[in-house]
């Protein structure tokens, strides 16, 4: 069968073909040549961004679209493959997924390059990052600079340097949820803890000391199993009460300590009334 001269077709037809082509095929097409990459770059897609999930052996990059279709993904897998002719990685394209195989040594770099390639190709943001760091054998790092939401979940404590690396080097624009044990001696640059919403839902969050707590710059805060007490809370509250901070919305604080000494009487609190609250009440 003769081949189809894609670029010799009328421009409108090329455009329509590319609009009808699924994301995975567009990635494959973009890898043929610089010109085909340029074509894909100018194509309108229903893609809204990427979700990235880091597991022990696999990293999954999901293509999130505005249509409610099945999810399409690129799986970066740790699998030793004999490289031939200097080929860096082997890839396979199936209907809905791309598989690429890497050694444990270079998988993180490959994920970084892959995500950079996709972001350059489609000019879309990283929406959500899911990190499951249990048993990841190598020092972990996220190779990109920003994402909207970050979720960390696990049973085992995350290595201090890994968590520090994530929190200090990735700009988390909206939500950060930490649902894994963090070592009590964990320390990071407190200025990095600026999120719209911050939740620490681990069974032990003793790393959130008074100093860390007072440095949190978040609209919504939900902390469990901390060692904070009522004095810490009062200090936070008082500072907010006398400040111009209009972003703070809600805080739920659960501590492993007794919570005595909470005194809000001098602020003349009034009973809860939904009628008096603004439309932005959660």
């Amino acid at each position: 069968m003769s081949t189809l001269p894609l670029l010799k077709l009328p421009v409108l037809c090329i455009n329509e073909i590319l609009i009808n082509t699924d994301i995975i095929s567009l990635v494959s097409l973009s890898l043929i040549s610089r010109r085909s990459k340029r074509l894909v770059r100018t194509t309108k897609t229903s893609l809204t961004g990427f979700n990235i999930k880091f597991y022990k052996d696999v990293t999954e990059v999901q293509f999130v679209t505005s249509e409610k279709k099945e999810v399409r993904s690129w799986f970066f897998k740790i699998e030793e493959k004999e490289s031939s002719g200097g080929q860096v990685m082997e890839m396979s394209f199936k209907d809905d997924v791309i598989h690429s195989y890497h050694s444990a040594m270079d998988i993180q770099q490959s994920v970084k390059l892959g995500v950079e390639y996709l972001r350059d190709l489609f000019a879309k943001p990283i929406l959500e990052v899911f990190l499951f760091p249990d048993d990841i054998p190598y020092p972990f790092y996220i190779g990109f600079k920003e994402c909207n939401n970050l979720y960390m979940k696990g049973e085992k404590p995350i290595r201090n340097e890994d968590l520090k690396n994530v929190l200090e080097n990735v700009l988390i624009k909206s939500v950060c949820i930490i649902q894994l044990p963090v070592n009590a001696d964990f320390k990071c640059n407190n200025n990095a803890l600026k999120f719209n919403e911050f939740s620490s839902l681990a069974k032990e969050a003793h790393w959130i000391t008074r100093e860390v707590f007072l440095n949190l710059k978040c609209s919504r805060i939900y902390l469990q199993h901390t060692l904070l007490d009522a004095h810490d809370f009062m200090a936070y509250f008082e500072r907010w009460y006398y400040s111009n901070d209009k972003h703070f919305e809600v805080m739920l604080l659960e501590t492993d300590k007794t919570f005595n000494g909470l005194n809000l009487e001098r602020f003349n609190p009034i009973p809860w009334n939904t009628q008096l609250r603004g439309q932005h009440f959660l």
Partner: peptide, 15 residues
């Protein structure tokens, strides 16, 4: 073009 890798795609279209 669906479900084809780069090499297979080159067999279908001429770029």
């Amino acid at each position: 073009l669906r479900g084809k890798n780069t090499q297979e795609m080159i067999k279908v279209i001429t770029l």
